[in-house]
């Protein structure tokens, strides 16, 4: 009854591997695991704290407050015509935070999950993906806070602010996707490269800090161009700076979206994501021997 052909194998385990070996069927089979990891991250993160998820809100609020004090009040960086300083910073911080959380969260994938990866097989890429998804929830809450302050500044303050969402706002999910891809891609690259030689982990810690200053988080790109034109290219071609700036343009309705740069950011994000996926897949097969 069973007319199996000798070579009718389900899969083969060997040392040889294809360059891009992403088994989507298998990934789909494990989709429940992705959501269970997300659930685990969410319900366990603030266990045994008093403020709980309030910490999601406090961190960006205080950072924005300090940024407003230092960069706007002390250093006099303009935030554009009619845009409240605090709101400008909150927009920058919120979007930057999502990218940063994805990057930092995924950059420790192998090291942090060494135990579980060493015992049982499942598509490893589930792990970084779950980080990105659980950060999305955090991002959603922070966007909620941002909207709250937006409404407050526009309607409930005596000063008249000249901000209104741009029609392009409908494309903002694309920006979120790009941030996720970029953070995930970079995170997977770093995670893969730190399984044997740990040097890069030290770079991540202060590298992310430095990258924030180069990503137009607390200043508009136009102001940087005006003040430091020689270094402007550094910011101009930084995909994450483009994304952060585009997000602010969309929500405040100031300035024009540069679609050419956005396409450039989209392509480079996808490219980095693909590279990350390839390196990650190559590493996952035997990282357990070297970590």
């Amino acid at each position: 009854m069973n007319t199996d052909i000798e070579d009718d194998w389900l899969y083969t385990i060997s040392s040889k591997r294809k360059l891009i070996d992403f088994n989507f069927n298998e990934f789909w089979q494990y989709k429940d695991l992705l959501f269970l990891f997300v659930k685990r991250d969410i319900i366990t993160l603030y266990k045994q704290t008093i403020l709980g998820p309030l910490w999601y809100l406090l961190q960006p609020l205080f950072t924005s407050l300090i940024f407003t004090l230092i960069f706007n009040n002390l250093a006099d960086i303009p935030t554009g015509e009619g845009v409240p300083n605090f709101l400008f910073n909150l927009a920058g911080i919120t979007s930057w935070n999502y990218f940063k959380d994805c990057l930092v969260g995924t950059s420790e994938t192998f090291k942090k999950n060494e135990k579980i990866f060493g015992k049982v097989y499942f598509p490893r890429v589930i792990m970084p993906m779950s980080v990105v998804v659980s950060n999305l929830l955090k991002f959603g809450i922070q966007i909620g806070v941002f909207i709250g302050f937006y409404v407050y500044f526009v309607w409930f303050t005596s000063k008249s602010y000249n901000v209104s969402p741009n029609f392009d706002l409908v494309f903002s999910p694309v920006l979120v996707l790009l941030m996720a891809l970029l953070g995930l891609g970079l995170g997977m690259i770093i995670s893969s490269m730190t399984t044997k030689y740990r040097d890069l982990t030290f770079l991540v810690q202060f590298g992310v800090q430095l990258l924030m200053y180069g990503s137009a988080v607390m200043y508009p790109m136009s102001y940087f161009k005006e003040k430091l034109p020689t270094y402007y290219w550094l910011i101009e071609w930084n995909p994450i700076a483009i994304i952060v700036e585009a997000f602010r343009t969309m929500v405040f309705g100031t300035g024009e979206l540069n679609s050419f740069k956005l396409i450039y950011a989209a392509i480079s994000s996808c490219f980095i994501f693909l590279i990350g996926l390839v390196i990650f897949n190559k590493t996952e097969k035997s990282f357990i021997d070297t970590i």
Partner: peptide, 28 residues
């Protein structure tokens, strides 16, 4: 470990017609 795909072999290959699940250490 090789059978359960936690790590890959240096040489050779394993072919299987079914899903392998491992109970290497319970409570993972």
């Amino acid at each position: 470990k090789i059978l359960s795909r936690v790590t890959s072999p240096t040489t050779g290959e394993i072919k299987t017609k079914g899903r392998i699940a491992s109970l290497l250490e319970v409570g993972t």
